[in-house]
Amino acid sequence: MTILSDALAVAGKDLRIEARSRVTLGQILPFGVLVLLLFAFALDPQSRLLPNVAPGLFWIAVLLAAVLAVSRSFAVESEHGARDALRLSGIDGASVFLGKAGAIVLELLALEVVLLIGTFGLYNVNVRGLEVLIPTAVAATCGIAATGTVYGILAAGLRVRETLVPLLVLPVTAPVLLGATRAFDDALTGSTGDAWPWVQLLVVFAAVYVTAGIVAFESLLEEA
């Protein structure tokens, strides 16, 4: 399958850039943890509120970090004519999409592990129901990364990229925030059975936007 091997090549390129430049590790990851810390300041750590609202705060932190990760992913393409090189490489748009979205998925999943440890430590949350947490996180992250990548290429190369990407990505991913928060809440409170419909919703969301990205990316890469 050339589509998949090309996608792996693109993802490998993005992850190698991150491994060398350390922007994700050194800036986006601390930003996510910082958001968790700021929520605790805002909601007063004395109260019993934090464990109850932890799932929502966790996913808001992930979404904010995802916006940065998407911007970063397309910032590396805008320098030194990298995007033209990508276009001329003969790699299909679908592969570029899958590769870039895949790299973002891996970055975000790593971030989520750290943030989950953070909520465990900072918000006094008892982490349990991993059999729900993991599928939820994977499905939600695929959806976020797919929408982010499509909007990232839409806004790539624009002067207003940094301000436009959040306005585009955050409303579209509102169902992900809802679904993932509810599923996490159900898992953490022990009612895992209630979580599965939400996981299904997240899977549908991810499927819709991964398909949209595969179909639309070639034209966006060419024209936009």
């Binding site: 929408t147 499509v150 909007y151 585009l168 579209v172 949209a212 639309a216 966006l220």
Partner: peptide, 11 residues
Amino acid sequence: AMRSSIAALIA
């Protein structure tokens, strides 16, 4: 037109 038509369908 290309950018916004795809964005409209995504929305």
